[in-house]
Amino acid sequence: MSKTKETFCVIDDDLIHQFIIKKMIAGIPADFEKNVLVFSNGLEAITYLKNAISNHDELPDIILLDINMPIMNGWQFLEQYKSIFPSLNKKITIYILSSSDNPHDIARVKEFKEVSGYFIKPITENELEKLMTAI
């Protein structure tokens, strides 16, 4: 059975980046419906996930997470995510998408088994397409 819908979740405080990612995702040809959820910080995103915790349809398939954000940054989001992870009704793949190439950040990702990869901005359409089809 092929999928009918794929939901992306972009967590980034940069409005231009939000616009770009939305446009890129929309531009990738696919034979299923593509949804994009956008949040400007970790708190907004974790609140949404908590509310939708058992609603399979409303949960995203892929999260693209920025690190440096106001209110709740990427690391803090991941800590919170760990606690809700067991009760999630869906397998969610998380990628870091940050403009930080600070090796401390890159190394720290390894502490979170919930994270599947680290991309440094800008992500290419090719890479994005691979993420999309890997699901």
């Binding site: 231009i16 980046h17 770009i20 403009s99 190439d101 600070n102 901005k121 800008p122």
Partner: peptide
């Protein structure tokens, strides 16, 4: 690192916007 990060974010945006 911070400078690089803060510069890279808008540079990445410009790159993508130019592509669009």
């Amino acid at each position: 690192y911070i400078t690089s990060h803060n510069l890279r974010a808008p540079v990445a945006n410009i790159a993508m916007l130019t592509k669009f």
